[in-house]
């Protein structure tokens, strides 16, 4: 286990400068993505499932971090879920931008200047150029045999998969069943809050339960499956050396904290800082481990 800086890490939420920066960026983002909105790309406010990523391949200028989303086949449905494209592409884009703003990380870009986000199939050779892979609504993913083998090789070589936004027991059982096909020899563990991932850049004292914006209103429960999904947890699959191969944020939708940062200021205040804190911690962690 790495020995980390014992200095107290700055918690992201209480910093007014950070909130201000996010707010400014959020406004800028909304203004910036209006052409996309005009094309009907957005959200669970009228959001629809996508059949393919908005761009083919990997970013044209790969001089930095690329946010790769797993473009999987949806084999079952979860309420409110849109399969692989859940929270896509705004969550991916926003986190990539914030990563470049809140840290010194260079990010890949498309020729038009858009941040480097991409969608890849598990059996696409481009997958191996993305050491970071993200999947949303993971409880609906189903993998072909070739995809299982490719994912396994990807993860064992040094790749990393973060799955998010899967709620309740059925989604859990389905996804862990799929992962058992990919990495049968490894157990799923509950990643304890003492793990240095929670404090590598920002100190995250507890795992936030972030819900979909349309599900949320101030003061209401954030559990999308009632008592069954009341407790958000982060699980992980580690290899024999302690490297995180798969991170699973269960009963929470961290990516919604990124996706919705400009949609609702109250939602932003409630969830986005924690969502970004975890997101940036995870990204920096996997880039250094």
């Amino acid at each position: 286990m790495d020995r980390l800086d014992p200095r107290p890490m700055t918690r992201i939420a209480p910093r007014p400068g950070f909130l201000f920066a996010l707010a400014v960026c959020g406004v800028a983002f909304v203004a910036d993505v209006s052409p996309l909105r005009a094309q009907g790309y957005f959200g669970r406010y009228g959001e629809s499932s996508r059949s393919r990523p908005i761009r083919e391949g990997l970013p044209d200028l790969p001089g930095g971090f690329t946010f790769c989303r797993l473009w999987y086949t949806q084999v079952r449905r979860e309420p409110g879920g849109l399969g692989w494209s859940t929270d896509y592409p705004r969550a991916d884009r926003n986190l990539t931008l914030r990563l470049s703003e809140l840290t010194l990380t260079p990010v890949a870009r498309w020729k038009d200047g858009e941040p480097g986000i991409a969608g890849v199939r598990a059996d696409d050779p481009d997958l191996y150029r993305c050491p970071f892979l993200f999947a949303s609504d993971a409880g609906t993913a189903g993998f072909e045999t070739a995809e299982v083998e490719a994912l396994r090789e990807y993860l064992l070589k040094g790749g990393f998969l973060w799955v998010d936004d899967f709620w309740g027991n059925r989604a859990w059982a389905h996804f862990t069943g799929e992962m058992a096909r990919v990495l049968p020899e490894y157990d799923v563990i509950d990643l304890p809050m003492e793990h240095p991932l929670y404090s590598i850049v920002y100190r995250v004292p507890k795992i936030p339960q972030i819900t979909a914006l349309q599900f949320w209103y101030p003061g209401a429960s954030t559990s999308e499956r009632g008592a069954e999904s009341a407790e958000p947890r982060i699980y992980a699959i580690l290899d024999e050396n302690g490297r995180i191969l798969v991170l699973m944020s269960h009963n929470t939708d961290i990516a919604d904290g990124w996706e919705r940062e400009g949609d609702n200021s109250a939602f932003f205040d409630a969830f986005s800082p924690d969502a970004y804190a975890i997101g940036i911690n995870v990204l920096v962690w996997i880039m250094t481990h």
Partner: peptide, 30 residues
């Protein structure tokens, strides 16, 4: 000076080498 995958993969590459201790100072921000 910049978070990037080269750090993690380099550490992973020499992890099994008991004769090398690579101390990483990773700058994440100013």
């Amino acid at each position: 000076g910049q978070p990037r995958f080269e750090v993690g993969f380099l550490r992973q590459a020499v992890r099994a080498d008991e004769n090398l201790q690579v101390v990483v100072l990773q700058r994440t921000g100013e």
